[in-house]
Every structure is written in C-alpha cells, then in structure tokens.
Write a protein that binds this DNA or RNA. Structure first.
Lengths: 201, 201
DNA sequence: TATGAAATACCTATTTGTGGGTATTTTGAT
DNA sequence: ATCAAAATACCCACAAATAGGTATTTCATA
C-alpha cells in the first residue's frame, strides 16, 4: 500500500487524479489544494508527491526546492498544464523524477507513476520530441538578456530600460539584438509573445 | 437517473469530473475526448452536456453552435480554463446555461450542475465580480479593429496590415490608435499581451 | 431624419526601432 | 593563464511607430 500526496489547487482535477490513482495502484492518496499548507507535511512520509506547476501563492518548483532544502526526501512527479521547454529544463535541474502534462491520458499517468515508483525517470510522451529537439538547438538567453526581454514585454522603451538597469540605452538595444538572434525571432511582437508564454508568471 | 455528456480532450480531467458527478448526482455520464467524434451523438439524448472551451480541432463554442444549428436540444455547461470576459460574453450570446472554471471546487460544480438542470443560469462565483465590473466599463472593439489587433500581435507592420486588409497603411494606423483608446492601453506590448490573452486561440 | 459609430484616408513632427557594424571590459571556466 | 561568453557602449542610416490632428463615406438605429 503506497502513500501518495497530490498538491494542486484545482480541486476538481486533483480529486479526479486521486480516484484514478487509487483505482489502478494500491494506494492511499492525500490531496492538498494550497502549496503553503502542504509545507505542514513531511514529504518523506510519502512514496511519491504529485506537484502542480501553476499554483497561486507558490509555484510547484519553488515548493519542491523548499522541501528539498529542509531535508524532506521523496520522489516528485510534476503535473503541468504547459510543456514549456524552459520549465521542463528547470524541473530537470531540480532533479524531479517525472514530468507529466495535464492532458496526458490515464494510461500515461499510471505508467509515469509506476516508473517513478521504480526509480525511473519519466517524461510525458508529448514533450519528449519537442524538448529533445529544442534542447539540441537551444541557446539560452543570459540573465541580463532575460531582464531586458521582460522589460520589453512590459512595453518599456529601450531608453527606459536603460534607465531601469542603469545602462546606456544602446546597451539595451544591443541586448535586444542578441535576444532576437538567439531566439531566432525577428519581430517585437514575437519577442513579447515569447516572453508572455515563457517568462512571465 | 440523468444522462450527461462530457466533451473534453483532457482525459484525466473528464474522468475525474465523471467520478465526481456520478458520486453526487444520480446519473450516467459519458465522456468523449474529441469534439469531432462527439458530433456523432445526438445531444438531445442528454439532459446536460459539459463542454470544454479549449480543445484542439474544434473550440467548445463552435461545437455548441454547430449542434444548435442542426437542431439538437440540450443544456450546456461550459468548463473553461480561463475567465476571459470576451469568451464569457460570447458564450452568453450563444445561450449557454452555465459557465464554470476548471479551478472551481467540487461544491461549485455540483451547484452549477443542479442549477442548470433546474433551468437556472449559473456562472462561476469566480467570474461574477470580474465580469460584471468589466461589462460596465467595457468598450468593445469593432470587428475591423479586432482584425488589425490580431495582425499587430502577429508582428505585422502597419504597412503589411494595410496590404493584408486592402486598406491604406494610414487606416491601419488609425485603427491602431482607436484600439489603444478603447482598451486604455498605451504600449504596443500591452496590445500584444491583450491579444495573446483575449483574442488568440 | 438625424446622430453616432465604423471605416476609410491623409498631414506633420517627433520618437523609436532596426540592421549593419565595431569595440572594450568583466567574468567564469578550463 | 587563456579563451569564450557576457555585458557594456557607440556609429550610421533607414524604417516604422506615435501623437496630434482633420476629414469623408457608409450604415444602422433611435
């Protein structure tokens, strides 16, 4: 009999997941809908913790980082709505054992759970292709460039960005050029969409 | 014993919803994960149809429009991820009986279902405040302006937009100005964010 | 029918952004 | 100690967007 923990603010979703897991795997599943409240638990008590990426109050990765720091030992299976390469990479760095998408089917979820329980890594089949491809050609933008990009997406002019970062507007422009090169995006609109989808919230 | 239909490409979610509905309401729930396949059913056979907004192949509202056109008679409860005022307004125009959010809790869902079954309208408590407020001060942008805005968000220059719409670039610029006035947005980035969040997909 | 919104188009001056470069200093990793 | 990437800054010329107007035609509705 396994003990699982699900942390997801979507009550409907986590309830459904609980039903499915308990149906296919002999287990007792606890659900929590607030990441802050979940901190009251010792994650070491669970064989596997399902963590939602997109929660108010605290993002899933922050939560995992926090409990790892304080010494809880468990296995983590991320359940995320979007398959943003940047997020997946961050999750991998943190050392999570699995990354599933909310639109995976029931079979995938059960496979993922079993895999992680048996100390294997598991990535949703839907992200495999994408991410591997992207990893190959991926040129990460630097921290400074990311700052600039965020300001661009906020509608700041290059002059304003220069002031905000205490650099010359020319430098901000140079960063902007570099970002476009690296991301292979050639319109401002494209940059903003990229930022909205990958950087913000 | 009610008969319900759930149309949602997220197998995990619809499965969970089915469990919950059947647990609290005496009913037999059918789930379908592809809106196109759902067209094989006669919606009149169901007391209530839950429809997801964001599906590949066909958007929830298109699906409902289609079955209404062909004469199926049922009640519709939208289940959506986002509470975009524009979408909610469109749904209301189509005459759907309920609009729920995926992060509503179980109690809300049951209330919504019961309400719609008893010929009442039901809106998620989470959207009420927002939408009413927005409705009050809402200045809708015109169809033409919406076209222009979409092109702006796609990174087209004003000249290109003019060519695409067979109007002078100046006119595209004028539309752009009007859009900014109406939406009270004063940066291009703001416009693009608005478009990404409210107009696209 | 009159009023207003929608859609069209233009003018001018000013501000921004772009694409092509080059160049220096810091810094982190090998 | 060296090498590459990051971060800084500038030049030029051209393209594009913006803010501020004004003005016409069409069309639905009050």
């Amino acid at each position: 009999m396994f003990k699982f923990l699900i942390i997801d603010d979507h009550e409907l979703f986590s309830n459904g997941l609980k039903q499915i897991i308990e149906k296919y795997i002999p287990s007792k599943v606890t659900t929590i809908h607030d990441p802050l409240l979940s901190l009251a638990y010792n994650f070491s008590d669970f064989d596997l913790v399902f963590v939602d990426m997109d929660m108010p109050n605290m993002k899933g990765l922050e939560l995992i980082e926090k409990v790892i720091e304080r010494g809880d030992i468990s296995k983590y299976l991320i359940i995320s709505m979007h398959n943003k390469p940047s997020l997946i990479r961050k999750a991998q760095k943190l050392g999570v054992q699995g990354y599933m998408l909310k639109d995976d089917n029931v079979e995938d979820i059960i496979n993922a759970t079993n895999a992680v329980l048996h100390d294997k890594l598991y990535m949703s089949p839907k992200i495999n292709h994408n991410t591997i491809d992207i990893n190959k050609t991926f040129t990460p933008i630097s921290p400074r460039e990311e700052q600039v990009l965020k300001y661009i997406a906020m509608g700041k002019t290059m002059k304003e960005i220069g002031e905000l970062l205490n650099i010359s507007p020319d430098t901000a422009i140079t960063h902007g050029k570099k970002i476009k090169q690296k991301l292979k995006i050639d319109s401002k609109a494209g940059l903003i969409k990229y930022a909205v989808e990958n950087l913000l919230t």
